[in-house]
Amino acid sequence: MNAPGFDTGAPPLALRGLRVTRGRREVLAVDALEVAAGETVALLGPNGAGKSTLLLASALLLPAAGEVRLFGERAGRGNAVRLRRLTSTVFQDAGLLDMSATRNVAQALAIHGVPRAERSERAARWIARLDIGDRAGARPHQLSGGEGQRVSLARALAVEPRLLFLDEPFSGLDFVMRSRLVGEMRALLAETGVTALLATHDHAEAALLAGRVVVLIEGRVAQAGPTGEVLRHPATPDVARFLGYSVVPAAEAAALGLEGRGDAAVPPAAVTVVPPGTDGAFDAVVGAVEGAGGAARLVLAAGVAGTALSAEVTLDALAEARWTPGAAVRARIDPSRVVWL
């Protein structure tokens, strides 16, 4: 989209001293955050961490104290609508209007001032691009969750936004559909080169889509950096726990065969259940068996204090061993994969 008058050198999004309060509680406090042109940044964090709040405040859809700059222009009441037209937002709920898929896209184009003659062709092109050409005439209640989200994405991208906000857009979908759409989104981001800010609680989604992540814990930025770096090297116990690491207190580390300084963050892949008699192993008790997305984890209680450790196990191993809560096992930690906090 052409936007004469905007500072083309300025970052698409720059936040300073952003604060959001609900009642007397400050739910978000971000001192500074910038999203550079062409990059995708993921806001990663558990439920209630403030990801959506930060994203909505950035999209000028939620009042917040502090400064939000879009393309160098400070947002205020007077220019919010104009600045929003440089952006698109996709929510978890497709939020489709009660009209056909094509008309939903055309409506967005109309708001953006695209001439009537051009709207239908452009809407049809994006509907086809999102692989729902055969559902072009369908209304929201006739679409599946995945199809509805595809229409929502088509609507967001058809207006050629300069900044795309994605608020957990795939969370409401089943595992297979989510995997497929995340893959397609990755291709679309590369194809369009649009700058994007993604809120998600899914590490894999962040890893696939974003070059940089900002981890939010209780409304504060707990860690930020390149995606791989953050996922491999959590900086604090809270970040480590959110990323699925088990945090072993320094006092307990030695009992589990770990040598280092400070608390140890142990990824589930570093913990293996081993046969009795294996060197360097320790006793543990199965606390729970968890599974999601084709993988399984044992939650073990280990060491003198019963430190909780997650161990990744294959579904085959799970079926064979039939671990149940309370079962005694031997486990070992691969020290090379441990992160010292």
Binding site: R85, I111, V159
Partner: peptide, 8 residues
């Protein structure tokens, strides 16, 4: 939110 986000 969606309608406002569309720039209406």
């Amino acid at each position: 939110l969606q309608v406002r986000a569309m720039g209406a």
